[in-house]
Nucleic acid binder design. Sequence first.
DNA 1: TTGAAAGCGCTAACAT
DNA 2: ATGTTAGCGCTTTCAA
Lengths: 341, 341
Amino acid sequence: MKVTVKSLAEAAGVSRGTVDRVLHDRGAVKPEVALRIKTLAREFGYVPNRAGRALAAFKTPYKIGTLIPSIGNRFFDDVKTGINQAKEEYADLGIEVILKEVQGYDVEDHLEAVNYLVEKGCRALCLATVDTPKMRDYINKLCDDNFKIILLNNDVSGTKRLCYVGSDYQKAGATCGGMLAMFSHVSFYKILIVTGSRLMLGHNQRIQAFKQSLIEGKVNFEIVATVESNDSDIIAQEETLKALRHDPSINCVYVTGAGVQGVGAALIALGRTDLMAIAYDDLYTTKELVQAGIIKFIITQQPIRQGYHAIKRAYLALAGQLTDPCEDFITDTIIKIKANL
Amino acid sequence: MKVTVKSLAEAAGVSRGTVDRVLHDRGAVKPEVALRIKTLAREFGYVPNRAGRALAAFKTPYKIGTLIPSIGNRFFDDVKTGINQAKEEYADLGIEVILKEVQGYDVEDHLEAVNYLVEKGCRALCLATVDTPKMRDYINKLCDDNFKIILLNNDVSGTKRLCYVGSDYQKAGATCGGMLAMFSHVSFYKILIVTGSRLMLGHNQRIQAFKQSLIEGKVNFEIVATVESNDSDIIAQEETLKALRHDPSINCVYVTGAGVQGVGAALIALGRTDLMAIAYDDLYTTKELVQAGIIKFIITQQPIRQGYHAIKRAYLALAGQLTDPCEDFITDTIIKIKANL
DNA sequence: TTGAAAGCGCTAACAT
DNA sequence: ATGTTAGCGCTTTCAA
């Protein structure tokens, strides 16, 4: 038998209004009655009907706040596409998405942005943000206040967030190493690592797992140098040029963050399109480099799905459809070569 | 301003009941009135509200019929998983899924199965079926009767279906070839092709594009033999054994259909785990072969998403959310090696 | 603190 | 051939 507000009300011997107040913690109900109703709801396995809710309250939509550091980072273009897909799809079920875009990874900027979303009245938040103690504490405070928090693209350690939606950076690094191990025709790899930032957990994991995987794959290699681009193409280009001039025996460049276009420019400038260049994410400019054969393969992480599912999860959480400790949504680690771009 | 049945009724100067009858072609309306309302609906861009519909008619759910040749073919396990996910997700929006499973690719069996679904009252059909004239004609007849037809996993040429949900077999074949081209450390590939059936369009496309891609990749190769397994592991094993014994210089096996486990068994039996074995789809047994290093990589096609999106498309079509000629849903062509299985 | 009632958009049964 | 009405599950007044 279907469990509805009406059937709960009958079972508890109260009115539907009272049940509704209890279910939404809107107060003004005698504590013992509230408890009875809550117990009943759990016992019967009450799950709100989305259609009923959407229809009744379509003028007060679920507000979902989203924070992404997308300014100046084309990676998030696809994430935004996914966000918009979900936004349109769930519009008639009563959601409203507020998007806050920031530049870079400054904690204070991010905290301010989250605060902005909270003040806008969002009860669910999808956050692509930094892994720092301050942010962790803020997130946990919000969780305690029953905000629905989804972490997007980058997890934040030690948080009570509902779930993480994004890629498995370890697996991505290992996959890169695994691919290289298959090209065992080069007897010795002298590798230059161009990372985005040593402060980014994901980038470090990509490096760590990459090395590990090369060792397991019995690849002869040496990390000649590791340079930081701060996700800037210009810096990436300069650093790559410098490193390759300094040591022309380098025959592999591993790019873990943004700045891929800069690395490509350096390789073209030096005429070093022979070496094994590997990178992440299929930005337009990166795809061009693969097409041209300068980058041999890239590893991608389904950014569109990340944006889409973050919003979807947030909606489902607000609509009470999610069983409490809900699984992370880990996107696939996808190898792209010229043929399947 | 929001366009509803009510606002349409007011604009047309009729009652909501009449508008509803027109919108659902339920007859009993003067033709000129019907025309006027239909024109109005188009002009105003009326899109039915899913929540309203779900609520009003949840005792008469949208019936979606699904046909898959899953008996004896583990590939469809994941497709079924996706179907069930969608089924549960959309249950409270009023869908009912009727699943018809058949064995093999006999046209008559398939026609009978489709007919069964139609007689069960399904107004939308997701079909994984054969590409034959008889089936094409039947599908087109149904399309004319305003059935919503989604073709799943295998397209049927020359049909007026709403859309195709599945993989791009050409791209998959080309990707296999592209991968091989990257392993250019073997100077000459002598290739044995183990195909499922020459009657399967997808398998043929995988072969065709594979060859093409090898040529473009300037790979030295020769197709030594092409054998058929009829998607049976036993036949695949026998044929592989026979071919490898006959010509031990074969150093690459390309498996386009089911029967992967059989091929693996043959390679193990002959101690030929050195050669380059390539296959499709990540069945459990196939993954084991990759883990063991016997198959070097596989190409997969996201079967879960195929099942999920077929049902989703069918629902959206029935709910009038789909703009008429709707795009195909092509799943990604995914390369899996040991590290990202 | 609680109940009663109206209404969201749509459909189906019934009435005219 | 067309209009009227009730009700799906839920939220939100307003009244008690």
